[in-house]
Design a protein around this nucleic acid. Structure first.
Lengths: 150, 150
DNA sequence: CATGAAATCGGAAACTC
DNA sequence: GAGTTTCCGATTTCATG
């Protein structure tokens, strides 16, 4: 995982349709070498998959909110139940004022209620705190550049 | 934006390296027609870009946290200042107990402090509340299926 | 939406340093 | 071990019906 790998990752994050010839130019190598590097990054699991970024509003999920879920028991086994809800885009176990934090996407603000109802159907959920997103500044890929400690 | 488009989007979210021949099979069309559909989805902005998903831990950003930012003034113009911080992966203006919500990724828990310090350097920031992620159940693509209202 | 042809790309060798 | 060159089958892309 050297600087060349990081450059390749950054280039692929920007545009994963780039040809290996183009990627080679970016890092000053041949297409074949760039290809080798990227293949190894995939094999190692550094690059998990190639995907497309979709405009949420265009598929009827223009409203975003975060829900802090409080509970009366351990909630570390609720991954499947949360994954079963299509509105839930992310789900995390957290330290702090609540047990879980989920990111939801729904068509309208009214649909937030319906989603909360579903969340309350999960055994152990004893309360929620909802944070409605008014505007999203940005949502971007993980920065592959060398961080302070790394 | 019909059911065929949604199927194509779902297939591309799963694996954007799939050939148009494969995509055509998924929706029961020829490769050329599938290609047409996908091109139009890109032109319309429904598909924003093709990218790669990277393992955060593999690039030294294995620790995730959410920071609620309180302020003593309107913060709707702070997008650039937040985008300048590589630790900040998402930034939203919110309704609720705070003004902004940012998602950060750092190498270790100790680096959270350094990031908070940078956030406090932004004019108007008067307080923060940090939610540390202990475990991420999942982070997935926006569901393109027909939602309750859509 | 399907077909067909030309340009381009992906993938994996053999070869060099 | 890492990078380069070279190769062929597969794929993208675009015209046409």
């Amino acid at each position: 995982m050297d600087d060349t790998d990081r450059k390749l990752i950054a280039a692929l994050q920007r545009d994963a349709t780039a040809s290996y010839a183009t990627l080679g130019e970016v890092v000053g190598m041949s297409a074949g070498s760039a290809h080798d590097r990227v293949r190894k990054l995939r094999d190692r699991g550094v690059i998990r998959r190639t995907t497309v970024e979709v405009d949420p509003a265009a598929v009827g999920r223009g409203v975003c909110a975060y829900v802090l879920i409080e509970s009366s028991r351990w909630m570390g086994d609720k991954a499947d139940e949360l994954a079963a809800l299509p509105e839930v885009q992310e789900a995390h176990v957290i330290a702090g004022p609540a047990s879980l934090l989920v990111k939801i996407r729904v068509p309208t603000t009214e649909d937030i209620q319906a989603c909360l109802r579903k969340l309350y159907d999960i055994p152990g959920v004893s309360g929620t705190q909802t944070v409605v997103v008014l505007e999203t500044f940005f949502e971007r890929s993980v920065d592959p550049g060398t961080p302070s400690t790394g």
